[in-house]
Design a protein around this nucleic acid. Structure first.
Lengths: 327, 327
DNA sequence: GTGCACTATGACAACGTTGTCTCCCCCCGG
DNA sequence: CCGGGGGGAGACAACGTTGTCATAGTGCAC
């Protein structure tokens, strides 16, 4: 900036006035300054600006499990849309379902003085956030609640959705329904299992633990579970996939099976309608999730001091075929 | 920081020494400082630090068309992985295939003094980058080359891949092959069309422009193209989808068709193997694309001054069924 | 006891901006 | 001719850090 000032033959402050479109600069002067800026390729240093003004940095942080997972990338996109409308930019990070990594990312973001943080929490302990939140960095939890603190949270109706899935299958005559979930440490997985249980109860089905598998989904693990749960005299006639990754592995495991059980997945996914049979899912609006969370965050950024809110978004069952076959 | 210093009864500089793990601080003093930091929830301001040290900001920018598109989110993930290994964080933005937006994002990133920029360019004019690059911000172009400047670029073999697709179909007896591409303004789309032409030539097929459609893919547009190209006396017996979105729309348009042509898609996608018939694609390694680009960028960040490089990654045809049916 | 090396600490400036205050000049009314 | 007002511009400090240099105190060899 001082180079520009020298070249234009003005003071550094006048350059500042020009780049900030402040009035009270003579047009001729402004033009000289602009020319100098152009010539030198000057670009104002936003870091220094934010430091001096004590203003917001114009960035927010988004932490998800994996930015490469279509579920989270859609979330990312929705968040970005809102951020852009508020003139903010988005720093993203993948926690890889690792709470240490999550914490590292959060603290790094705080050190960068992001205006706010959106996080799909991996861990259950979030006490480390208390000082940051007290220091004025708003945090909104997405898809899963904070472990041990009270904070803004946006969730989907995991419980209701899974109950609906069970009911749907029961309505089509199924009494032995398997549930393939994810690691029970993950809130959504635990909650959906709870919904599965409750769904069984409501439909007069005795809950059978041997038909449940709760573990991080891998192709091999799901393959084994399929062999175990869908064969033999007490085999399940229907199966619920606890999330989109379970669903994909399950579909692959079933692809060449001689017997195909009825199936309902939690989370919609692209091409579900083009498979044979098309896959019935409990769908929810991922964009709406990101949208709601980001809106909530920006309300906080702009000074909303009301008590922490908990938003639960609805889900709905999309019947496409795979869930409507009889036992 | 001055609050911490006051509470610990030391100078601000000593606090700085403690947070930077500098030697020559008495353990007792350090402990007092740590306690004060803990008590006040102090977190060093990275912005101020970077300003003072004149060092890098520890961030890089990534601009893609749409962070929500699985193709780009996988790229994002690969880039993030490398960035993390270099201790950097990633600012992301979606250009929405709009060159003004792209430019806005780039300049904003530069104003934030990112250490480097990775961009999947939307426009053809990149002269605006020259001052920034001269000022020392390295830029690497991904998937598409810069329009009018020389810069590091990482591409995939669009030409070779499409030739391979045509050859594959020709080998299975097809002589009338349709090509559904994207807007010809997009480098990859134009390049794949060029490959289609070349493929026809090499296989002794006369290139028929009436079997080609180059436009931004929408469900409706692809549906119309299908009606036009795959019916009538001169109907195509095979079709090449120019990218993953075209493929998805095409699959949906064909789902309930009485006649299904052979098909090969450019870009692999999840579940392609589970469709009926499984979809044959020209696949390339999106992770490798992001990996290579990020590695190249960090080499530049670390001072590599060698002439701009152009990397072309190989593609390979994955035969799954849809491309192996006879006319 | 003197000199020297070394440890622990602090004062101060500087990074690139911008807010505040001040100054100068010109124009206009009385 | 003088005073006041407003437009245009600059000097300076400050944002939160850290690099440089200075200083005070300690221990040790001579």
């Amino acid at each position: 900036m001082s180079d520009v000032a020298r070249l234009a033959g003005v003071s550094i402050k006048t350059v500042s006035r020009v780049v900030n479109d402040e009035p009270a600069v003579h047009p001729d002067t402004a033009e000289r300054v602009m020319a100098a800026i152009e010539q030198l390729g000057f670009r104002r240093n936003l870091g220094a600006r934010n430091l001096r003004r004590g203003s917001t940095t114009g960035t927010i942080g988004l932490i998800v499990e994996d930015v490469g997972n279509p579920f989270y990338s859609e979330l990312n996109r929705a968040v970005e849309r809102i951020a852009t409308s508020f003139g903010r930019q988005v720093l993203t990070g993948s926690s890889e379902e690792n709470s240490d990594r999550e914490r590292e990312l959060v603290l790094e973001f705080c050190a960068r003085r992001v205006d706010g943080i959106l996080v799909v929490p991996a861990g259950l302990q979030h006490g480390y956030l208390v000082p940051e939140m007290r220091a004025g960095t708003p945090v909104v939890f997405i898809d899963r609640p904070a472990g041990d603190i009270v904070a803004d949270t946006v969730l989907v109706d995991n419980l209701g959705g899974t109950i609906e899935a069970v009911t749907h299958l029961a309505k089509h005559g199924h009494r032995r329904i398997a549930f393939l979930g994810d690691s029970p440490d993950i809130f959504t997985a635990a909650e959906r299992l709870r919904g599965f249980r409750e769904g069984c109860v409501r439909n007069g089905i005795s809950y059978d633990e041997s038909l449940v598998s709760m573990r991080t989904p891998t192709q091999e693990g799901i393959g084994d579970a399929v062999k175990r749960l869908l064969h033999g005299p007490d085999a399940a006639t229907a199966v619920i996939a606890g999330n989109n990754r379970v669903a994909v592995h399950l579909l692959r495991a079933l692809a060449h099976a001689e017997y195909r059980p009825a199936m309902v997945g939690f989370d919609d996914f692209e091409l579900a309608d083009l498979l044979d049979p098309p896959v019935t899912v409990v769908a929810h609006d991922v964009s709406a999730l990101g949208h709601a969370a980001a809106e909530l965050l920006f309300a906080r950024v702009q000074g909303d001091q009301s008590p922490p809110r908990k938003v639960v978004l609805p889900v709905h069952l999309v019947a496409r075929g795979s869930g409507e076959v009889a036992p």
